[in-house]
Structure formats: C-alpha cells, structure tokens
C-alpha cells in the first residue's frame, strides 16, 4: 500500500533582496524587491510501507524542503502530497503524532535538560501511556546504548551521542514513518556505523518506513533499497542502488598523502582532480587495484585512501547526461 504519495509538488520561496549599506537597509523599509527561488519543481514519487529510501542530491537541491513539506512544517506552492492519507500541513497535529523526524544538524531536544527529562517531556507531549513509554524507552535506550548519557544535559553531549539521543526521541511514540535529514553528517566513522546499523534494524524488525537524505554514498550503499536523486529542485532518478551504481560504475577517488614533494607522473596528469604540495587526489573510472599498485611504486606515499566519488559529481554527471538526451 502506498504510504507517501507526492504528485507534481512544487515550492517557490520569496526571498527579499537587500541592497548593501545603510541606504539599502533604509530603502528596504519602504520598497522591497523579491526574487523567486524554485526549491522544488514538479516532483512526484510514491513510497510504500516498509521501504528504506535514500534521497540524495547536492546542497540546495531541495531535499530538506521536501522533508519539511512531508512533515507538515512547510506548505507547498502547488501539487499534491499525502502521507498515510493525510495532508501534512492541513492535519498537522494528527500527522506529526504518527511520524518521527530527525534533523542531523539540529537537535529536537531541550538544550539545557538532561536527556531523560527531554524524553519524559516528549511522553507528555505525545501522550504516550506510562506502560508503553516504559517499554519503548527501555528498548531504545538499550538499542542505541544511551544508558550512560541519560543524566547529561543535551548541550554537553558530543555530536554522535546527541544524534543517537535525537533518533531515540523521534521514535518514542512508535511512529510508522521516519524522516531522517542527514543523520550521519559530521559523525566520526564509529558513530556512522552505529547509526546505520540502528536504522537498518528498525527498518527490518519493525517495518518502519524510512526516508533518509544524505550526502554520504556509504549510507546509501549500506542502507537503501531505493534511491531518489534530486538536483536543482527536480527529480533526476528514481531507481535501485544498482541503477545508481551504473552511473558511477567502478569509479573511485584515490587520495594520496606524500612523504615529500613529488611531481605527478605525466601518464597520471589527466586523472588529477586536486593537487597540493603534499596531496594528490585522483579520479578513476576503473582498474583501481592496478592503479594503486602503480602509485605505491612511483610516489613516496605516506597515506592512501580510496573513496566513492562525491555525490555532487555523480549528480552533475547525471544532470549533464540528461541534458544531452533532451
């Protein structure tokens, strides 16, 4: 059964333009020019119960705007949007009671309160009965390993700890749908693994529908069955991880840190993305192991890292391909 239905969704923001300087500021009081910014243009997709969908795209593509419309914070300019049969911004209270939302960059908890008091307060706000709350919070505290953190004020938590607490807070009322906006941003490797494992677990064991925005291709690789790619407010791709992989194929970035300066070998010149005295960043389409072998032999390598190419690059390539087709 379709759970999230988005059809022809558009959102245009009106942004006041300001002239610089004092005169501009005074002038702005009387006459103001507005500029329209199209954050979303005719976006349509359907998500089914229990799916784990990745929503990717460069900064400013409109990912957060979509999440904010789906969670009832923003009203779209046009188009249709239904979640569990509800129109989010029209039935806000009923709607938010049955979804969970986490913004990785911004906490939903009370900054000065100990974590457990934030949880207790959420129990009152969501009107969770005591027995359900007890069971649910115990479960989440154990799964996310929060027992040591409960008495710490939120402002004293590290980013990784805070995100774990935020995720627990978003799930206390047992929502069937979870929106995660960049849940792994800024986290260290271990925290990223923990958060990913947890998302996978609740999606699988509790059949919670998850829509996750991210910049991190590893999140997508590990978690998502399905991917939506957004660029400049438009949906470029709706497909599986295999479809996306076709787009970047075997391509990898190889970052090399040098012991001492060495000039780039002429045959590698075309592969260089970035170059400084002590670092070289190569972009490869294929044959990564052979290339690494060569690099280790030819350069005084201090450290070497192989990563997926950044999403911006893949999306940019897709975008170009799209334009050539049309």
């Amino acid at each position: 059964m379709s759970q999230i239905l988005v059809e022809g969704l558009s959102k245009t923001f009106r942004v006041a333009e300001r002239k610089p300087g004092l005169l501009g500021a005074v002038g702005g009081l009387f006459q103001r020019k507005y500029r329209s910014v199209d954050a979303l243009r005719d976006v349509s997709f359907t998500i089914y119960e229990g799916e784990l969908v990745g929503y990717i795209g460069p900064n400013g593509a409109g990912k957060s705007t979509t999440i904010k419309i789906l969670s009832g914070i923003l009203v779209p300019s046009s188009g249709r949007c239904e979640v569990d049969g509800r129109i989010p911004w029209k039935q806000r209270r009923a709607h938010v009671a049955s979804i969970g939302v986490v913004f990785g960059q911004r906490t939903q908890l009370w900054w000065d309160l100990p974590v457990i008091e934030s949880f207790d307060l959420l129990r009152d706000i969501y009107r969770i009965t005591d027995s359900v709350y007890q069971q649910r919070s115990d479960e989440l505290i154990e799964m996310l390993d929060l027992s040591e953190l409960l008495d710490t004020p939120v402002r004293q938590l590290s980013l990784g700890q805070r995100v774990r607490c935020d995720i627990a807070a978003a799930l206390l009322h047992a929502p069937r749908i979870l929106f995660l906006d960049e849940p792994t941003i800024g986290l260290d490797a271990v925290s990223q693994l923990n958060v990913r494992a947890f998302i996978k677990q609740i999606s699988r064991d509790q059949n919670v529908t998850v829509l996750l925005t991210t910049h991190n291709l590893d999140d997508i690789e590990v978690l998502c069955d399905r991917i939506l790619v957004l660029s400049d407010g438009q949906l470029l791709m709706d497909g599986s991880i295999a479809d996306l992989r076709k787009q970047y194929g075997e391509g990898r970035y190889v970052a090399v840190e040098l012991e001492s300066f060495a000039s780039t070998a002429p045959e590698h010149e075309t592969l260089v993305v970035e170059r400084s005295d002590s670092h070289i960043l190569f972009s490869l389409e294929s044959d990564v192991p052979e290339f690494v072998d060569e690099v280790l032999r030819q350069y005084p390598v201090k450290d070497l890292l192989i990563t997926h190419p950044p999403i911006e690059r893949i999306v940019a390539e897709m975008y170009q391909a799209e334009r050539i087709e049309h």
């Binding site: 969670s71 009832g72 914070i73 209270r93 938010v96 009671a97 939302v101 911004r106 706000i125």
Partner: peptide
C-alpha cells in the same frame, strides 16, 4: 534561527 521547525513537529 529556524528553530520554529521543532515546534511544528510536536503534536500539541
């Protein structure tokens, strides 16, 4: 600050 988002997410 955009903190108002947080308030709109509460069923109260």
């Amino acid at each position: 600050t955009g903190q108002f988002d947080r308030f709109l997410l509460r069923p109260a």
